[in-house]
Simulated scan of single mutants.
Amino acid sequence: MNIQTERKRHDEGFTLIELLIVMSIMLVLMTLAIPQLLKLRKTANETSALQSVRTIGQAELQYNSAYPANGFSCSLPQLGGTAGAAPTAQAAQLIDAGLAAGQKSGYTFAITNCTKVTINNQDMYTSYQITAVPQSIGKTGDAGFCADENNTIRKDPTGGTNCTQPIQ
Rank of each mutant, 00 (worst) to 15 (best):
Q58I: 07
L20W: 05
G71R: 02
G80A: 11
R9I: 04
L19S: 06
L20G: 11
R9T: 03
Q78W: 13
A86W: 04
F14H: 09
H10D: 01
G13R: 13
G84E: 03
F14E: 01
V28W: 00
L50C: 08
N70M: 12
R41N: 14
M26P: 02
Y63A: 06
Q78A: 14
I17K: 06
G57R: 08
G80N: 02
K42T: 05
L40H: 11
Q36K: 15
S65W: 12
T55C: 04
T47S: 13
S52F: 07
I17M: 14
K39M: 10
N70V: 12
L29A: 15
L27F: 09
E18G: 08
T55D: 11
L32T: 11
I56C: 06
V22P: 03
Q78C: 04
I34A: 14
L40S: 15
S75E: 03
P68V: 09
L29N: 03
V22G: 12
V28A: 15
I25L: 15
A44F: 07
E6D: 10
R7K: 14
L29R: 07
L79M: 05
A59I: 07
L38N: 08
H10V: 04
M23P: 02
L27W: 02
R41L: 13
I25W: 07
G71H: 04
I17V: 15
E60C: 01
S73M: 05
L37H: 12
S52P: 03
A66R: 12
K8H: 11
C74R: 05
A69L: 14
A83W: 04
A33I: 03
P35N: 12
G57M: 05
I17Y: 11
S24R: 09
A86P: 02
N64H: 12
G13N: 11
G57D: 04
S73W: 03
S73A: 15
Y67P: 02
E12N: 08
S24M: 13
T43F: 00
G71E: 02
S48N: 14
F72S: 00
L61D: 09
P68A: 10
F72I: 04
G71F: 07
E60G: 01
K42P: 00
Q78Y: 09
S52H: 09
R54T: 14
S75D: 09
G80K: 01
